[in-house]
Amino acid sequence: MEWTSYLAPLAQGAWVTAQLTVYSTILGGLFAFAFGLGKLSHNPLLKGFSVAYIEIFRGTSLLVQLFWIYFALPILGQAIGLDLRFPPVAAGVAALALNIGAYGAEVVRGAVQAVPREQYEAATALNFTGRKRLWRITLPQAIPEMMPTFGNLAVQNLKDTALVSLISLGDMAFRAEQIRNFTQDSVTVYTLVLFMYFGMALVVTACMKLLERYVGRWRAAGR
């Protein structure tokens, strides 16, 4: 079989992979900010919950989390009388986002804490409320610091999407396995897929670099 005939199904898979990556990276980013800031909160409940989330999702394996959400959660739901069965897409996006969000939360926390104390004092002296100080002074300075690591995490997330093929989601890895089963032409299929992932990673990296430049544009002014 000609290798070009693999391209159509692989492209279908690539589209699923791209969607999974985008959705779970955005959702993961939200988790990262919510729990990263939560860990810095003075409210012990919020702080405790954030620390527990970060430790659990960083401390266990992504595949364990994915299987737990897909296989174990429905059983838990049955026991407590809730329908916690999720379609593979939802389980996949949730597991990826929760996992990457936990790593991102530590990045957010670190970057916020790295904003010089003097900025906090200047904002206090100008009588900003705590919330406005965070949104208008601290975060705009912290976010550009997070971006290089966020870029790495986004690529990590793209790679991790391959695991959702194991709960039979039709992403690129899943299509590759199908084609291999059908043709036994493993060298061609996997070489092709490796390069497709590499290409997508380059696109993700380029997008994150653009975003990094955008959020940090004040740093480049006049240089």
Binding site: E118, A122, L126, R219
Partner: peptide, 24 residues
């Protein structure tokens, strides 16, 4: 007025002067 100025690095000079009056 601080020894190290402590201006907000992510805002223009004018924005440094208008941010607190507007927001606060």
């Amino acid at each position: 007025v601080f020894q190290q100025f402590n201006l907000f690095p992510h805002m223009t000079v004018l924005r440094n002067l208008t941010e607190a009056p507007v927001q606060v």
